[in-house]
């Protein structure tokens, strides 16, 4: 572990999404005191051993356009190292790209570098996001939304040409509901 906290944030850390979903269960078990939210982040050394991301070579890549091709992903992501495997996220029903993918490198360092240098930059003129991922498993390439795509595209109210226009369904019960980014860990 890197030990001392750096004087500026590191970009090669897993996102809050990952940490939250991992610790949600733990947190619900406890009585919820106000301001207790950040207990998950307080004892990094205790969780070091079982950290599933400590040697992660895979990245979840989100906010792609539906039209972005594998070749484009290869072109950009190869700048951080040779790609071992690329799995495009697909619509569960019609098997067309639905705006995310998994990129697997040969080394952990390449994956970290990708977080630092490519996450948050543009591909196909969209800002893409990257997140460390414990590894692709069969089934995770499919969208988990009702209509087959990613859940975020169900509830989206804005018009996004690269992601099929308007959200596919606007859920009535959006309040109090967690957004789930499909293909990712629950």
């Amino acid at each position: 572990m890197r030990g001392v906290r750096a004087t500026v944030d590191r970009l090669d850390r897993p996102s809050a999404y990952f940490n939250n979903s991992r610790h949600k269960r733990r947190r619900f078990d406890k009585d919820q005191r106000d301001g207790d939210d950040d207990t998950a982040g307080m004892h990094p050394e205790q969780r070091e051993d079982d950290d599933p991301l400590k040697n992660a070579t895979t990245l979840y890549v989100g906010n792609l356009s539906f039209f972005t091709t594998e070749e484009q992903v290869y072109e950009l992501f190869s700048k951080c190292g040779e790609i071992k495997r690329l799995v495009m996220g697909l619509d569960r029903f019609n098997k067309t790209p639905c705006g995310f993918c998994f990129v697997e490198y040969y080394t952990h360092q390449d994956a970290l570098d990708c977080m630092k240098y490519i996450g948050g930059t543009k591909l196909d003129e969209r800002i893409i996001r990257t997140d460390l991922d414990p590894g692709f498993e069969e089934g995770r390439q499919y969208g988990r939304g009702k209509s087959g795509g990613q859940v975020r595209d169900e509830y989206r109210e804005d018009y996004d040409e690269g992601r099929g226009g308007l959200g596919r369904a606007i859920a009535r019960d959006r309040e109090g509901r967690d957004f789930v980014d499909d293909g990712r860990l629950r």
Partner: peptide, 12 residues
């Protein structure tokens, strides 16, 4: 010292 793409990203 680092991958070239790092320096790209700094300029970006």
């Amino acid at each position: 010292e680092h991958k070239l793409v790092y320096y790209h990203s700094v300029l970006t």
